[in-house]
Nucleic acid binder design. Structure first.
Length: 576
RNA sequence: CGGGGUAUAGCGCAGUCUGGUAGCGCGCCUGCUUUGGGAGCAGGAUGUGGCAGGUUCAAAUCCUGUCGUCCCGACCA
């Protein structure tokens, strides 16, 4: 491809609304342009990258024996009503009406559609297992689209759905998909981790997210230092401390704390160690609790984990913090002065907080705290549960090593669905005894467009994008020096271009009549992994100048063997 | 959904307080000179000032409404 036919729509200045590196660079490099909030046009250069990721995904899914289909993006409401999700999905589901006032939605996912297909097409256990996939545009009306293609409303997704006669078969396909995903992200040149994820209310025995590690990631991931344990912080278990609470060392006393409404203020003003403070969070309870509210007790330096909390018996789902009015009505004191002693509400205490001794907490009277509180002596120990987010240094739940926390971008998610949809939609087959059996399902997603953003997030520098070769829009940039002036340079460049193309190299020939600085800057910005410069200087010695995108120096290489050299570089990088 | 910004040329921005009919940089077009790290000179094009009302002799500027868009929050005692 020649830049004269393939304009580089690069920008020196960035549109002001780009926050993170990938978004900025995608705009500056001209990969995408915004149409509206969360909606982007992929320009030719960006689309080449998207298609490369797509191709890798497709090749690996095919290799795993999955079958490609293409389902409609627009879906009739009836199927969603059947699964119950027309009601439950909420505002993220973009709903439409056709000219006959029939209701549809723009698909955010395709469980209903594939389940409908399966119940119509699959009759016998002999047709199982089967794994369908598609690569298609999805729409989710995100509360707050941001970060360019990372959290767009319209995005490209590979979604797959498998159908099985039993759980064992599902587990086998699930494991295979796990391995396939590893191959895909490996091939894309990404530093990623499979991470145990929330299985939610659906049940089933497994779910993994695949995260690309990057500081700008929206999710926090906990890893073991010693084992391959990895879990989303949302899910990672904070294991119970082995040691029991130490014995009390002093009496409980009531202290006036008029200016301490937060744990931070309490620690600051009264010199209390933060790990010897307990905070009391009041949340709304479900119908089973007469008081209407429940108190959750955590150490002052720990954070409540909302997902863990809303699974507790008695706690309303979704988790909802009580209002100040509700708290005053129930306790007689405001937030900032709450504590477990003489609290007339059901309480649940976090495992770590349950082994605190001589701790301080609110006295349930405005402006007063109790210091030197001890469980058992001053207040009965309530029910104990895991309520908090794990923190760096916590023991790993598998008993090996401690946890470190890193940030990740979720690019894939695999899920053992079980029979949630097949039950709701009566997707059955006949088993070997001629009996009707509800199929068991798995589903497997990859955010194809998000992978592009995540790759940039992980691979960029001052100059711009640094593509992994496997997903780069071009493998090599050919930059001639003063080609308009020098016949010799032109001939050499044209010949090299032809030879490279003949060798199957994806080469971008910068044949613009631009200054060298402009060409170099553009090629670096758009992240082409390899660059060759042809100029009078080198030709005198029969050489060209090579530079890898990550290199800091040029290398002079003989023009003769250059095609072989680059072919080798490329094939090593893409593992072909 | 709550709070806060912002809306002026393709992009980045100034002008708004103190009303007088729009400007800078980059980019774009033409010509000449230039060409090994984002060139120089000369000339040129581009704006219903988000939209709708209102106040005024006069509105980018003041007032009201509205749409878009961005950020923060929706996790805490």
């Amino acid at each position: 491809m020649r830049t004269s036919n393939f304009p580089l729509q690069t920008l020196k200045e960035v549109p002001a609304d780009a926050e993170i590196a990938s978004h900025r660079l995608m705009l500056r490099a001209g990969l995408i342009r915004k149409l509206a909030a969360g909606l982007y046009t992929w320009q030719p250069l960006g689309l080449r990258v998207l298609r490369k990721v797509e191709r890798i995904v497709r090749e690996e899914m095919d290799r795993a024996g999955a079958l490609e289909v293409l389902m409609p993006a627009v879906q009739p409401a009836e199927l969603w009503e059947e699964s119950g999700r027309w009601e439950k999905y909420g505002a993220e589901l973009l709903r439409l009406k056709d000219r006959h006032q029939r209701e549809f939605c723009f698909g955010p996912t395709h469980e209903e559609i594939i389940t409908d297909l399966a119940r119509n097409e699959l009759r016998s256990y002999r047709q199982l297992p089967i794994n369908y996939y598609q690569i298609q545009t999805k729409f989710r009306d995100e509360i707050r689209p941001r970060f360019g293609v990372m959290r767009a409303r319209e995005f490209l997704m590979k979604d797959a759905y498998s159908f099985h006669i039993d759980q064992d078969s599902l587990a086998a396909t699930y494991d295979q998909m796990h391995a396939t995903y590893c191959r895909i992200f490996e091939r894309c040149g990404l530093d990623y981790r499979p991470v145990a994820a929330d299985t939610g209310s659906i049940g089933g025995s497994g779910s993994h997210e695949f995260h690309v590690l990057a500081d700008s990631g929206e999710d926090a991931i906990a890893f073991s230092t010693e084992s391959d344990y990895a879990a989303n912080v949302e899910l990672a278990e904070a294991v119970a401390p082995a040691a029991a609470a130490p014995a009390p060392t002093g009496d409980m006393r009531l202290v006036d704390t008029p200016d301490a409404r937060t744990i931070a203020e309490l620690v600051e003003q009264f010199d209390q160690p933060i790990e010897k403070t307990i905070k009391t969070l009041i949340v709304v309870a479900d119908d089973s609790v007469d008081a209407g509210l429940i108190a959750l007790l955590l150490r002052g330096d720990h954070e409540l984990n909302a997902i863990k909390a809303e699974k507790l018996p008695g706690v309303a789902e979704p988790l909802q913090m009580a209002s100040e009015e509700q708290i005053r009505a129930a306790v007689g004191a405001g937030p900032g002065s709450l504590g477990p002693v003489d609290l007339a509400l059901p309480m649940i205490v976090d495992r770590a907080a349950a082994v605190c001794s001589d701790f301080s907490a609110g006295a349930n009277t405005d402006g007063k705290h109790l210091f030197g509180i001890n469980w058992g002596r001053d207040v009965a120990l309530p029910d104990v549960a895991d309520l908090r987010n794990v923190v760096e240094g916590d023991p790993s739940p598998d008993g090996r090593g401690t946890l470190t926390i890193a940030r990740g971008i979720e690019v894939g998610h695999i899920f053992q669905l079980g029979r949630k949809y097949s039950d709701a939609m009566q997707a059955t087959v006949l088993d070997e005894n001629g009996k009707q059996v509800t199929m068991t399902m798995g589903c497997y997603g990859i955010g194809v467009s998000r992978v592009v953003g995540a790759a940039i997030e992980q691979h960029n520098d001052e100059q711009g994008i640094v593509w992994p070769t496997a997903i780069a829009p071009f493998q090599l940039a050919l930059v001639p020096m003063q080609m308009k002036k020098s016949e010799r340079v032109r001939d050499a460049a044209e010949k090299l271009y032809a030879d490279l193309q003949a060798a199957g190299i994806e080469v971008l020939f910068d044949d613009r009549d631009a200054r060298p600085g402009v060409m170099f800057a553009d090629i670096e910005l758009i992240g082409i992994p390899h660059r060759v410069v042809v100029g009078e200087r080198g030709l005198d010695k029969g050489e060209v100048e090579y530079r890898g995108r990550r290199d800091s120096e040029n290398r002079m290489l003989p023009l003769d063997g250059f095609v072989d050299f680059i072919r080798q570089q490329v094939s090593e990088a893409i593992g072909a």
